[in-house]
């Protein structure tokens, strides 16, 4: 398992301890361990390839330090590179511009869009905004009801969607209605869909045209495997997403999908979901996710100090 990345690297670099340089030959085996570890964390293999190349470039020629084993030294570089990749772009919502501000939530089936819509409404309400939750999922049984129940729980208004109306129409009408109700932030919950479903992706494009959202957030499950890149790229290509929300991160998934999605879309992760309850939404902390991907929080804090 991956918890032993450190141990595995230490044994790989045993011969090197205390002297010498990290060279092409002696680093090869170590990088193989790092590569396996990242794959085990669900980082996409293409992303891993590029990443390893970067780590190698940085590591080559470095003097082996007194205070760290070569293994720790490689881990340190890996960790720093990870944080850089994950944290290069942190940002929160940008809702400036026209009022009402419009946010669309999109993603695969079951990723957590409806729950996250309500979490966002609660978050924005606390910030003094006046959110309007809009159920635009007329497909899944009781999806509208689900958002209605949640909006009551957070105490915000919910648009009374008519399931016989097309989602694009629902969204358009809700945006028109918001100012009449003195509401300034429209949050549109869309139906889950596969990124290869052209008809349904077309519907999202049409919705974007009609309501010109400031934010299009891709809601993705932290447990997603290698396919995360295909999914994220397709949503980004079709819609130009503005950010990502990673859900279900409180479990024991390594969360490599975060890295994969960032690498292929270049869009920031704006929030993470850490539970089913409506207050379980957090800002994204690159260092925490990096630790998680490496699965070795305690060791890392020691290494980072060195």
């Amino acid at each position: 398992m991956f918890d032993n990345l450190q141990k595995r690297l230490d044994s790989v670099f045993k011969k090197l301890k205390g002297y010498g340089r990290l060279t092409e030959e002696n680093i090869q085996e170590g990088l193989r361990e790092v590569r396996l570890a990242l794959l085990e964390a669900d980082v996409n293999y293409k992303v891993v390839k590029d990443f390893i190349a970067k780590v190698k470039e940085r590591a080559l020629g470095q003097e082996v330090m007194e205070s760290l084993t070569p293994g720790q030294q490689v881990v340190k570089i890996v960790h720093q590179e990870l944080i850089e990749l994950l944290g290069g772009k942190t940002s929160s919502l940008s809702l400036a511009g026209k009022s009402p501000a419009v946010i669309m939530l999109v993603g695969l089936q079951g990723s957590g869009k409806t729950t996250t819509s309500a979490k966002l409404a609660r978050f924005l309400k606390k910030k003094g905004r006046r959110p309007y939750l809009v159920p635009a999922d007329v497909q899944r049984p009781a999806a509208i009801k689900q958002l209605q129940v949640l909006s009551k729980q957070v105490g915000v208004e919910c648009y009374p969607s008519d399931p016989k109306e097309p989602p694009v129409e629902i969204a358009r009408k809700a945006v028109l209605k918001a100012p009449l109700m003195n509401l300034d932030t429209v949050i549109i919950d869309t139906a889950g869909r596969l990124h290869i479903d052209e008809a349904l992706m077309g519907e999202l494009k049409a919705m974007k045209e009609k309501v010109a959202p400031q934010e299009i957030l891709l809601v993705a499950d932290a447990m997603t495997g290698q396919d995360a890149v295909n999914m994220a790229k397709a949503f980004d290509d079709a819609l130009g997403i503005t950010g990502v929300i990673l859900t279900k991160l409180e479990g024991d998934a390594r969360g490599g999908a975060a890295l994969s999605i960032l690498a292929v879309t270049g869009k920031p992760i704006k929030f993470v979901g850490i539970g089913e309850k409506l207050d379980e939404l957090e800002a994204f902390h690159p260092d925490r996710v990096a630790n998680r991907i490496l699965g070795m929080g305690d060791v890392l804090s020691f290494i980072e100090k060195a």
């Binding site: 085990e40 964390a41 669900d42 695969l108 079951g110 499950d221 447990m223 997603t224 495997g225 290698q226 396919d227 995360a228 999914m231 479990g251 024991d252 998934a253 390594r254 490599g256 999908a257």
Partner: peptide
């Protein structure tokens, strides 16, 4: 199990 799940499915 969701087929898009990665290594976590085993856990």
């Amino acid at each position: 199990l969701d087929a898009t799940t990665g290594q976590n499915a085993l856990n």
